[in-house]
Simulated scan of single mutants.
Amino acid sequence: MEVTQLRKAARRGLAEEAADRVREAIFAGHFRPGAPLREVELAASLGISRGSVREGLALLSREGLIHGGWHRPTTVVEVTVADVEEVYSVRAALDRLAATTAHTHATPDELAGLDSLVAELATAVREDADGPRLLALDIAFHDQVYAAAGNTRLREAWHAVRSQVFLFQLQRISLGHRHYRARVVAEHRELATLIRAGETARLARAAEDHVHSARQSLLAELSG
């Protein structure tokens, strides 16, 4: 029997670790949109080789968080109007489907998890938590909605845009945090309530409105 020759599998643990650490730094606001990411400095900071850093940055590039190329510096992507329109349009469609599917399939434990995250958000707002902390809870809520939907391909589609959503939302908060703080708890509480026992049509509208509100807020800040 003839055996097809394949390339040896590469160990990518360090590359994935590098991607995780840099992603965390971006999401914490340490590397802002447009900020350069230098392999030498990152390798020294992380205590790993430049090759591992380069592979890790390639993973982040595929997530849409950074860009670069031959003879071009690697930087965190800058948020443009065109990118906002594209990403939030895709997210609105995905969130609508995730919410309505979760309404049908969510277990009591998953519904309780949504309520718990809303309570954490409310506490974080009262305690004047910083933007990245609020946003981490916000995204965790939506992760839970997608998990409750029980649709593997839908969840994969969410993860394809999740990093860009986080980065764009972080930019929204940095430019206009008052609007975000004023709405974040009420909007997520409404979604949790409707997923538990709401009308499907009303839930679908609320899920889309939640995304469109974020899009409009960010676009207003970018143009201002």
Rank of each mutant, 00 (worst) to 15 (best):
M1C: 10
V3W: 07
Q5F: 09
R7S: 03
A9P: 07
A9C: 12
R12S: 12
R12E: 01
G13V: 03
L14V: 13
E17T: 03
A18W: 03
A19T: 08
A19R: 09
D20P: 11
R21V: 14
V22D: 15
V22G: 07
R23P: 05
A25Q: 15
A25L: 09
A28H: 04
A28Y: 14
F31N: 04
F31T: 00
A35V: 00
V40K: 10
A44S: 08
S49T: 13
S49R: 12
S52F: 15
L57V: 06
L57S: 05
A58G: 04
L59C: 12
L59Y: 09
R72E: 12
T74E: 00
T75H: 08
V77F: 04
E78T: 15
E78S: 08
E78R: 02
T80L: 02
V90R: 00
R91P: 13
A92T: 00
A92S: 04
R96Y: 05
A98D: 04
A98C: 02
T100I: 07
H103E: 03
H105C: 13
T107K: 08
T107W: 05
D109N: 04
E110Y: 06
E110K: 01
G113R: 03
V118S: 00
E120V: 13
A122R: 00
T123P: 15
V125P: 01
V125K: 10
E127N: 09
P132D: 03
P132W: 06
P132F: 08
L134W: 03
A136P: 02
A136G: 11
L137C: 03
D138V: 13
A140G: 10
A140Q: 15
Q144H: 15
V145C: 11
Y146K: 06
A157R: 07
H159S: 09
A160D: 01
A160T: 11
V161Y: 14
R162S: 02
L167E: 00
S174P: 08
G176R: 06
H179F: 10
A186C: 12
E187D: 09
E187I: 00
E190W: 09
A192T: 02
T193W: 01
T193K: 09
L194M: 14
T200P: 09
T200G: 05
A201L: 12
R202H: 13
R202M: 07
E208I: 11
H210A: 03
V211F: 13
H212Q: 07
S213A: 05
S213E: 09
R215L: 15
S217W: 14
L218V: 06
L218R: 10
L219H: 01
A220T: 13
L222G: 04
S223V: 01
S223W: 10
